[in-house]
Structure formats: structure tokens, C-alpha cells
Design a protein around this nucleic acid. Structure first.
Length: 328
DNA sequence: GTGTTTGTTATCAA
DNA sequence: CTTGATAACAAACA
């Protein structure tokens, strides 16, 4: 469940790994993941390179050197962008010293791989362009040796980026500047920037007084980047129940929430995000903020602040965790 | 077979 | 038009 801190972690890593490298190979395992037209996608990316990677909320905006389009990348719930550096025929994990489980980067591409990009530092030797069928399984069956293998054996030193997405909600879509602008304009302010102002935040509690706090904080058009995990954590930190009617949140509580949001997001970025289920960073490694969660995923456990028992309910259609003891 | 997981959008009601 | 709530999407797991 990549939220702002997880997407930001990936963004920072990808800048180091793939910026300005030539895209020498493109493989689409699932056309839907790239907006439906795999050939258009491949053509736009082959021989191209990234000049910048921006983030807005949970959305990544890839700037391409050639062509008029940008690439919008959204991981939704189960998307992963895993970069594997290549040495000869052997695939090598970039970040060592960390044990990887079977579900991590070994065996990539796997059945959840929807797109693979091959990078090279130098000029592209051979530009591979292939479009696969519905799943990696089909691909492997239909072609001798499997196209997946042909990617792994590509003669490049730049490495490969795998877009894995179990549930296929995520996407990598080409978009012209006009569409990008329209998309970005819909987001609320970024909590970790100078755009994060209390006057704006406080006004939301008047404007949206009839919903509950959880729904307010989850709304990307009002605040960019919070998702289910961090909303629960922010509410705990501020001592307010996520189910509280927005109109009944006091100014003092608004202040705690206002300060708590960037505080938690920054801490989570510092610890490279939270891995609760599917999140892996671009090295295929888990996020470490999981150890710092106070309520999310701790239903039935003791509150670290008041020794109450964390409750899990459903609010705004989401699994919601809070402490009845110290959240009012 | 049932319920649960959640980011975003579509849809509907008020 | 706005707000608010809910279903739908899709795959896997307990």
C-alpha cells in the first residue's frame, strides 16, 4: 500500500538508478497496465531516457527526454518498481547485506511482472521491442526460452526495472502535458512543503464538516499523499478518533493534526516507508517504518500511550484502527 | 464459498 | 455544481 512516504522513497532511489540512462528494451506483459496500447508505449520509450522524476501525492511523473509525452506512474495498492542491476548474465541485487525472501527480487520477472524496462548507460546496441500476451505465464509458454529470459540476457550494463503489480490497478501511462497539468491540479497541498498552511487546513473542517475525519484526511483533492495507514497513525498521534465528525474537531485538535501529518510522513520517509503487505522499495527491500506503527495492524494489542486495547473497525469503507482509551 | 485487503474513480442521491 | 457515501475494479489469502 504505497502512500506518500513509500512513493517518495522509490522516487529518490530511482533518480539515482535510472535517470539519464537509455531505455534499450521494453517489455509489456500486461497491456492494461500501460493504458491499453503496448506498441505505443514501447515506441515512445525505446531509445528514450528520463530527465526527471517528480511526485505529486502518490503519483510519479516521469519526464522523458524525447517526445511530448510524460509517463504517469501510479502503484495503487500492490504496485512495485524494482530495479535489478545486471553483471554479465547474472542478476545482482543492488543493495546487499539484506536477506531477501522468495517474494522479493529473486526470480524476476515473475507472474506479477506487468512491464520490464532494460536500461543501458551507453548507446543502445539492439533495440528490443516486444509485446506479450495477457500474463507472464503465457509469454513463457509461447516463446522458446521465454521473452522474460531475453530481457534478462540483454547485453546492457544499465540494469532492469520491473513493474510488478499483483492486482493490476497500477499503471504506467503516457500523457501529454495538458493531461499531466490537469491531473496535478486536482491534488490538494503537499504536507511536506511550504504549501502546507494551517489556514487552509483549518478551513477544510468548516467546508467538509459533515463527513468524518478519516474520509477528510484520505481525500487526495484536499490533502495529497495520505493513505489508510498514515491516516490512522496521524489520528492516533493527535488523539482524535478517525470516526469523529469533522465539524466537531476542535481548533486545538486541528493544530495537532496539522503538525502531526508532516511529522509522521517525514519520519516514515526517513525509515524508507512501511511494509505491511506488498510494499517493496526499488531495491526489493521492505520499509522499516512498520516497526513504528502505533495503531495500524495492531487491533487487539495494547496502546503504547495509555495501555488501552486498540480497536479495529470500518470507517470510510476502510479498515480503521484507533485506541478508545486515548483517542477522543 | 466468504470476508478482507485499499487507491482511485464511477455512480447515485441529496 | 457540490458534497458525501458506496460500489466497482482485481487477485490472493485466511
Amino acid at each position: 500500500m504505497p502512500e506518500l512516504p513509500e512513493v517518495e522513497t522509490i522516487r529518490r532511489d530511482l533518480i539515482k538508478k535510472i535517470l539519464n540512462k537509455k531505455i534499450a528494451g521494453v517489455k509489456v506483459y500486461n497491456a492494461k497496465s500501460v493504458g491499453g496500447t503496448a506498441s505505443k508505449f514501447s515506441t515512445a520509450l525505446l531509445g528514450n531516457s528520463l530527465t526527471a522524476i517528480e511526485r505529486r501525492g502518490k503519483l510519479l511523473i516521469w519526464h522523458l527526454k524525447k517526445g511530448a509525452d510524460f509517463l504517469l506512474v501510479h502503484l495503487k495498492m500492490t504496485g512495485q518498481l524494482i530495479y535489478v542491476k545486471e553483471r554479465g548474465n547474472k542478476v545482482e541485487v543492488v543493495a546487499g547485506g539484506h536477506k531477501l525472501s522468495e517474494n522479493d527480487i529473486e526470480g524476476l520477472p515473475n507472474k506479477h511482472t506487468r512491464v520490464a524496462l532494460v536500461f543501458t548507460d551507453g548507446p543502445a546496441h539492439s533495440l528490443k521491442h516486444s509485446v506479450a500476451g495477457e500474463s507472464a505465464r503465457n509469454v513463457t509458454r509461447s516463446v522458446a526460452g521465454g521473452p522474460a529470459r531475453s530481457v534478462a540476457r540483454s547485453e546492457t550494463g544499465g540494469g532492469q526495472l520491473f513493474f510488478n503489480d499483483l492486482r493490476m490497478f497500477g499503471y504506467m501511462k503516457l500523457a501529454p502535458a495538458s493531461v499531466v497539468q490537469k491531473t496535478l491540479n486536482r491534488f490538494g497541498p503537499e504536507p511536506n512543503t511550504k504549501d502546507w498552511k494551517f489556514d487552509y487546513f483549518s478551513a477544510l473542517f468548516q467546508k467538509r464538516k459533515n463527513t468524518n475525519l478519516k474520509a477528510l484526511l484520505l481525500n487526495q483533492e484536499l490533502i495529497a499523499g495520505l493513505g489508510n495507514i498514515y491516516v490512522d497513525e496521524v489520528c492516533w498521534l493527535a488523539g482524535v478518533k478517525p470516526t469523529r465528525r469533522v465539524g466537531a474537531v476542535t481548533v486545538a485538535e486541528q493544530k495537532k493534526l496539522f503538525l502531526g501529518i508532516p511529522k509522521i510522513l517525514r519520519a516514515a520517509i526517513k525509515h524508507r516507508g512501511t511494509t505491511f503487505r506488498n510494499f517493496l522499495d526499488s531495491n526489493g527491500r521492505k520499509g522499516n517504518y512498520t516497526d513504528f506503527l502505533n495503531v495500524y495492524g495492531r487491533g487487539g494489542e495494547k496502546c503504547r500511550r495509555c495501555q488501552g486495547i486498540i480497536k479495529k473497525i470500518r470507517a470510510a469503507g476502510r479498515g480503521t484502527h484507533f485506541c478508545p482509551g486515548c483517542q477522543k
